[in-house]
Design a protein around this nucleic acid. Structure first.
Length: 201
DNA sequence: TGCCAGGCCCTCTTTAGGGCCTT
């Protein structure tokens, strides 16, 4: 499969533009099933981290005071990603913050997002739930470090993508597998995935 | 003033409701 950029944001909340900003970003570049490059940075957008989120991520307001400014980090990560196709776990969330933070520095997204949450619901229906951490443990994937930090979560999502690719190739016999295929598959109604895979492979 | 996400997915559905998932 072609090069894919797996991205994860940590933020101060759920909704960008309602006071919520990105606090950390990580991207791992996957090529032929291997991580070949990494980018990770905290970023200071000048907003406080709510106590609940600091407890969840371990990222505090104090840590962000000494982090590089958000504009510099977003420019760097945008250059790093370029027009490489993207993937995230619950991509609707990361896409929202990617688009929002890029718009603040006068940039915009050119590529589409694939979503390992939507794909997991379709390809791993027997999993107890479809949280990134649960899927990682359930599928026996490597421990990547502290969950809810950007790099650990990006690596987990990358490992999960490789597991999903294995399912598609092994269990479902899909031959032509690329980012566009993943984007198409994640839009197939969950109840019709088996039928769709027979046609798509 | 008071409220505060939103798209996906299932079902005791479709003139709707509630849980999931991300921080």
């Amino acid at each position: 499969m072609e090069r894919i950029a797996v991205i994860d944001f940590e933020t101060t909340g759920i909704t960008p533009g309602a006071g919520c900003r990105a606090t950390e970003v990580a991207v791992v570049m996957l090529e032929q099933g291997r991580i070949v490059e990494r980018y990770q940075s905290l970023m200071n957008a000048g907003v406080p981290v709510p106590a609940f989120v600091a407890g969840l991520t371990g990222i505090t307001t104090a840590m962000l005071r000494s982090a590089p400014p958000v504009d510099r980090v977003m420019n760097e990560v945008a250059e790093f990603v370029g027009d490489t196709p993207l993937l995230a776990h619950n991509a609707a969330f990361d896409q929202k913050f990617w688009d929002y933070e890029l718009s603040r520095i006068g940039r915009s997204r050119s590529q589409s997002f694939a979503c390992s949450l939507l794909l997991s619901r379709r390809l791993l229906p027997a999993a107890p739930n479809h949280k990134l951490g649960t899927l990682t443990r359930w599928a026996g994937l490597p421990d990547t470090g502290t969950a809810h930090r950007a790099m650990a979560d990006a690596e987990m999502a990358a490992n999960l993508l490789q597991h999903l690719v294995g399912e598609l190739r092994g269990t479902h016999g899909v031959q032509r597998l690329d980012h566009a295929f993943l984007c198409k598959l994640q839009k197939v109604p969950a109840a019709k995935v088996r039928e769709a895979l027979l046609k798509l492979r």
